[in-house]
Amino acid sequence: MNWQVMFSNRKERCELLEALLISYKHINIPIFSQRIHLLWGENDKIFKKELAHNMKELLGNKTTFEGIKNAGHLVHMERPCAFNTSLNHFLSSLLFPTPN
């Protein structure tokens, strides 16, 4: 292995990694007029479920959350039937809302 290649451009690599870090403390969430449904894999190792709950709170009353069991980050690929069922249920609720 060529160690020079591995450690070249170290400064640039550090800058790229620092740019990837996102601070959610100062993020401005726009106000959306439409309903939003968050589908989340309960075993997601990339974006934890707590992030989804925080997003739901920040997005407001028109946002719903559903965790899909036995699924990670790629819910639509890991549990396609559960994903499609949930998505169809949400989309049909847009077309045929239940009266309040």
Rank of each mutant, 00 (worst) to 15 (best):
L38C: 06
L16P: 01
S8P: 04
H76T: 06
Y24F: 13
C14A: 14
S33Y: 00
H37W: 12
T98D: 02
M6H: 14
W3C: 10
W40E: 04
S86E: 05
L38W: 08
A71W: 07
R13M: 15
T64M: 06
E15C: 09
F47P: 00
N100T: 01
L95R: 10
H37E: 13
S23A: 04
R35V: 00
L39N: 02
A19P: 01
K49D: 08
E15N: 07
E57R: 15
A52T: 05
A52N: 03
N2F: 10
Q34K: 04
H26A: 09
M6T: 11
S23W: 00
R35E: 13
C81M: 10
L20M: 14
T85W: 01
E50A: 11
N54P: 00
D44A: 02
A82S: 13
F47H: 06
L94K: 02
C14G: 01
S33W: 00
C81I: 10
L91T: 06
S86T: 13
F65R: 09
K25M: 03
F96G: 00
E50W: 03
G67S: 15
L87K: 11
L87A: 15
H89D: 10
I46F: 04
K48I: 13
L38G: 06
K25N: 13
G41W: 08
L38E: 05
E42C: 09
N54T: 09
L21G: 07
I31P: 01
C81H: 14
L17N: 09
A71T: 10
S92R: 12
S33Q: 07
S33E: 13
Q4F: 15
N84R: 04
N70F: 05
I22M: 06
A71F: 01
V5Q: 14
S86C: 09
L21T: 10
I27M: 15
K56S: 12
F47G: 01
F65H: 14
T85H: 14
N100K: 06
L38I: 15
H26P: 00
S92Y: 05
Q4I: 14
I46S: 09
D44H: 00
N43D: 13
L20R: 10
T98K: 13
M55H: 11
G67E: 11
E18P: 00
S86L: 03
T98Q: 07
A19M: 10
S33H: 07
I31D: 07
P30E: 02
M6R: 14
S93A: 02
H76Y: 12
